[in-house]
Simulated scan of single mutants.
Amino acid sequence: MQRRAFTLIELLVVIAIIAILAAILFPVFAQARDKARSAACLSNTKQLALGVYQYAQDYDETLPVAGYNAQCRGRWQWQIFPYVKNEQVFTCPNISQRPWVKTTNNNFTCPNSGQVITSGLGQNDKGGYGWNYALQGDNGNGASSLDSAPGYALAAIGKPADTVIIGETGFVPNVAAASGWAMMAFDPRLTGAAAGFAQPGLLAQGRHNTEQTFTMQGMPVPIKGRLNVVFMDGHAKNLSLGQLFEVAPVVGGVAVEDGVSLVNENNVATATPGTLVNHTRPNIRYRLLNIY
């Protein structure tokens, strides 16, 4: 009996077919993996929102403050951790290399007052979720400054289903510019307007299904991708950057919502009147990042 072996041509054809199939399937596997991470991330934001609501119920329906250093009360994650009780929920699966952990700083000195707090405050900036900085604290609620300002009352948010409280921010590198504990109202797609912002980690990160980035402070800021956010009414949603930064209706060249003319960040004269606190933008023109 004569045995017939594969010819070199036949073997090369089989290898070529396998390579073609691999080239087709590997991106599909990568997309499926990213979809799974995005779903887990969406679940995280929902759990964080539940923690925020439990916190609010214990504090006379008042939200946490953002927790930047001048407020001297610890980051918002640290404030709601007793209700969440799971460190992993505070970390986006896409940046698991930089997890959030419940850490405290003893003998923390408040920058404005000089007060020393010895009980320890949570100042961890990792994890990849940021508090909407428009909700940093209700400075108009009888407080002379944000040092003593309480969080916003739930009743003060006129459109809870259209107000983002937590969204994806932050990067993997362990540097100050990568910190993502808050989300500022800067549209990362407007590279000219956002380029001067010192901490790209505080910009919204469309790190799921990212298609396009630009480099700021040595980090690839997504300008085309999707991110997960959770709204004041508790529903979580996966959005594109375009959906998150939807501008209020424009009337006579000015964004207007409920009869209020909103700030246009491209107009320096109105965007920075000299009374801003840190990175805040009063009357933010982005519908989902404003407080109405």
Results as ranks from 00 to 15, higher is better:
T275I: 11
A204E: 04
Q47Y: 01
N94Q: 08
D34F: 03
A156R: 14
T7W: 00
N132V: 05
V260W: 06
K102Y: 13
T62I: 02
G158Q: 14
R285T: 02
G225P: 11
G51S: 04
D60M: 05
R73K: 14
I165V: 15
G120H: 04
N69T: 11
Y59W: 09
Q79N: 07
A32M: 08
K85S: 06
P82T: 09
Q199F: 07
V256S: 03
M183K: 04
L42G: 09
S240L: 01
A176L: 09
V250T: 15
K35N: 12
G234V: 14
T109P: 02
F186M: 01
G140P: 00
A16P: 04
L239W: 06
G142C: 02
R98L: 03
A143V: 05
A156Y: 05
N278F: 10
T272H: 06
N44E: 07
I15P: 00
N105L: 13
P249V: 06
H208N: 14
P188S: 10
N139K: 13
W181R: 11
E168N: 08
G206Y: 06
T270I: 15
R98F: 06
I223W: 03
F108Q: 14
N278E: 14
P160Q: 12
T210F: 00
R4D: 00
L11P: 00
T215L: 07
S43T: 08
A269S: 14
I165E: 03
K237Y: 04
L121H: 12
Q77S: 07
V254L: 00
Q212F: 00
Q88C: 02
N107Y: 10
I165M: 15
I223M: 07
A149I: 02
V13Y: 06
I284N: 12
R37E: 12
T163A: 06
A40V: 13
V52C: 11
A255W: 04
V221M: 05
V13G: 03
K224N: 06
G253P: 11
G158H: 08
Y286M: 07
S148Y: 07
S43H: 09
L8E: 14
K46D: 13
N69Y: 12
Q2E: 15
A185M: 11
T109W: 06
L227V: 11
E246L: 05
T169L: 12
S145V: 03
L11Q: 15
N69I: 06
A155G: 07
Y129I: 08
A161S: 15
Q71A: 03
V116P: 00
H208K: 02
Y53V: 01
S145K: 05
A70Y: 07
E87M: 08
Y292A: 08
S240T: 15
A66V: 06
G67Y: 04
P200T: 09
A156N: 15
